[in-house]
Design a protein around this nucleic acid. Structure first.
Lengths: 255, 255
DNA sequence: ACACATCAACGTATGTCATACATAGTTTTA
DNA sequence: TAAAACTATGTATGACATACGTTGATGTGT
């Protein structure tokens, strides 16, 4: 059987799996293996081997059990990934709720940092709105400052979706972008030679705007990180997020 | 050998593959198979089988060649996916550049529509800034109205990244969210029963903000799509995008 | 005109993977 | 105490990406 593309995601199964508290009265041998333990072992493996290094067999050996034992606790690898994503998300950070802009920036910074720490999270297929306890906690944590700022519930939800999406997307696309103009120990990094190659391809005829931007970037002195005061949010993100917050702020005030 | 997580993306190979024009003087038999033909066949398969249904063997049989012949033109499945993504992106839409807000909304709508048409695009692993001809064309197309609006090159780039990320992320997260409150032929759709289950889990103690939003959503009458005039951009997205554009607009005016 | 270098297509082979299925052993409830 | 329920195991299957060696066609340089 394939995965998520083919059969619709089994939300019910996901739910029970993600929220499963141990029901007390069970028959049979007391399980030594649990969803939690499996997920944690899998997370450890993913942390240093990436998602590709992750196989059911490896998880089993890591735990000292046979491969098929895992399937007594987890219906499929896909569902396991879902659980991993929630467990790995951990609890959301505490925010400074006195200033909603600051709070949102802190949240964005924390989420970004999370993706930096565990890049494989970006590779976990996402089929439905998050429903795990931790993921919901993150969402809740973000909604608080947004509601406090004066947004209507539906608007807050939209804004939260927006912000989540931005961070996710930026983390994916921008993975190497941050290093594009940085120098590693004085040497201009491998990426830069790509930049040069691109410069040839990006001719002003076919890509006028891109050429402009590209030219400006290679010409301009790198510095000027415009010092926003909190460095948690990376430069590429902060501009967009700040503009978004400007818009939210104005909207909230306007009512 | 695994995939993208393990070894860094081979940008050079990606480039030559994506931009390969047929070099004229070659020895050996003239190839009947080309990267293009392979990519197109793969896209067709992905279109109706999803990414999981896609295997090198299937692509080969579809084309009437042996599996291994593909590897004469494509170094790995991962690279093929990259090519597929660029080919499938096709040319960007024409925009109404007289109004930069409208232009951006059109762009967003088009990209969103693309992800709707080919959901598997969201599953193609993204390791670096886009470098294929079509992807660059999309980027260029978006940069134009942004620059015209008065943004500095770097800001335009950030804004473009932001918008791309939003659409991608929203398409991923919101895949089923759009249907959450819709009714299919009068019946409240399967998802709703999940909504009910969630309502129990989302208690006001652990998730105060979420509970508020959830309550408001299930209570409020669905309607009020606030009629923005262009329906290309879906509801969940439009609020965020519009706020973002507000912020961008104000910023641009402020200089 | 010829010989050889080059490369496309092929077949076979290897190792890995998720997971179905049947079995054996264990513990709690009736 | 008997049996139901459940966990762990071992084996088996079918699909997959891709390495490798071979064959034959096609150009290029002599």
């Amino acid at each position: 059987m394939a995965t998520r593309d083919s059969k619709g995601p089994d939300l019910e199964r996901s739910l029970t799996l993600l929220w499963a508290g141990r029901s007390p009265g069970r028959r049979g041998p007391r399980p030594q293996l649990t969803v939690e333990r499996i997920a944690r072992a899998a997370i450890k493996l993913a942390d240093d081997g990436g998602l590709d290094g992750l196989s059911m067999q490896r998880i089993a050996t890591e735990l000292g059990y046979s491969t098929m034992s895992l399937y007594n606790h987890v219906p499929s690898k896909d569902l396991l990934l879902e659980v991993m994503a929630d467990v790995a998300a951990e609890k959301p950070p505490e925010l400074d709720d006195t200033d909603f802009r600051l709070a949102v920036r802190q949240w964005v910074g924390a989420l970004w940092a999370g993706f930096q720490t565990r890049p494989w999270l970006l590779r976990v297929p996402l089929d439905h709105t998050p429903i795990g306890p931790n993921q919901l906690a993150w969402l809740d944590r973000l909604l608080r400052p947004l509601l406090a700022a004066g947004l209507a519930p539906g608007e807050a939800r939209s804004a939260a979706l927006h912000l989540t999406a931005v961070v996710r997307g930026a983390a994916q696309i921008g993975l190497d972008m941050s290093g594009a103009h940085k120098t590693v120990d004085g040497r201009p990094h491998t990426e830069t030679e790509l930049a040069r190659a691109l410069t040839e391809l990006v001719d002003p005829v076919g890509y006028p705007a891109l050429a402009t931007v590209h030219a400006a970037e290679t010409t301009t002195v790198q510095s000027g990180p415009e010092e926003t005061g909190d460095e948690t949010v990376p430069a590429e993100l902060s501009f967009g997020v700040d503009r978004f917050l400007d818009g939210i702020d104005a909207w909230a005030r306007r009512r």
